[in-house]
């Protein structure tokens, strides 16, 4: 893991009316790091990603990515990032290739570059044989992989993956893990949110646990486990429940 800070978030705040969605969030992500953002539903993870991906303006605080301010130089930031949202943000009526080419061209690639990048990324997520099929004919896991491939079209340096493995089979999930690890090995920085603790334990170099809009735990998985017991016996789920409580959430 390199030490260079690629993303710096400081004092982030965001409210929607009276609801304080994000409150004084600060963390950094180093280059080639997989950083996990964990938290129960409504903790503010997605709002943090939306602010970092230039879609939402923070009410307060500062974010820089690759040295560029997200608010002051959003165009430069957009060239560095790829976003894989929680929803399947794609066009089911179009083929996998057409989806990737469209988003690639919208990101500024020309037609030839977009087709080449689409071929590479479909191969990366293991869908090269289904490139011409309509996405609506795909299984849930395959759609999730297309969703990730789209985020890779602009060859980003920082990839946001917002719960990329929700509702898919173990094979597809494992394929996604391998893809993310490969991307990290190739030099990409990843911000990864998930509800699955074993995923975070396997993939993430460092983690932040969020609840009620704030970060309540930050460190490597082992450091976090050490805070509540023997790191070889405590699971990340124990840590999560210790921090966020056992009370049921909506």
């Amino acid at each position: 893991m390199a030490d260079t800070e690629f993303l710096v978030a400081h004092g982030l705040r965001k409210a929607f009316g009276p609801f304080q969605a994000v409150d004084s969030v600060s963390f950094t992500i180093s280059q080639r790091e997989i950083f996990g953002l964990l938290g129960p539903n409504g903790a503010g993870k997605t709002t943090v990603i939306r602010m970092m991906s230039t879609v939402l303006k923070p009410d307060d605080g500062h974010i820089s990515i690759g040295g560029f301010s997200v608010t002051a130089d959003s165009d430069s930031v957009r060239k560095l990032i790829g976003v894989c949202p929680q929803e399947l943000a794609l066009y089911p009526e179009l083929s996998a290739t057409d989806n990737l080419v469209f988003f690639g061209r919208m990101a500024g690639l020309n037609g030839r570059q977009a087709r080449e990048s689409a071929r590479e990324n479909l191969e990366r997520v293991g869908l090269q044989d289904r490139a011409r099929d309509r996405v609506e004919q795909f299984s849930g896991g395959m759609k999730r992989r297309v969703n990730i491939a789209i985020a890779l079209m602009s060859r980003p340096q920082l990839l946001f993956l917002d719960e990329p493995t929700v509702g898919i089979d173990p094979q597809s999930r494992n394929h996604i893990f391998e893809t993310v690890e490969n991307l990290r090995d190739e030099g990409m920085t990843v911000l990864y949110t998930t509800h699955y603790m074993e995923e975070a334990d396997r993939l993430c170099d460092r983690l932040a646990i969020m609840d009620h809009g704030s970060i309540i735990g930050l460190g490597t998985p082992r450091e976090l486990k050490s805070e509540i017991g023997n790191p070889d016996r405590v699971t990340l789920e124990d840590v999560f429940l210790e921090y966020t409580g056992r009370r049921l959430r909506d």
Binding site: S53, V55, D75, R78, V83, G108, I150
Partner: peptide, 14 residues
């Protein structure tokens, strides 16, 4: 808007 393709486009430089 609901399935976030518009948001994805905006974060993509659109």
């Amino acid at each position: 808007r609901q399935n976030q393709t518009l948001e994805r486009l905006m974060s993509n430089g659109t």
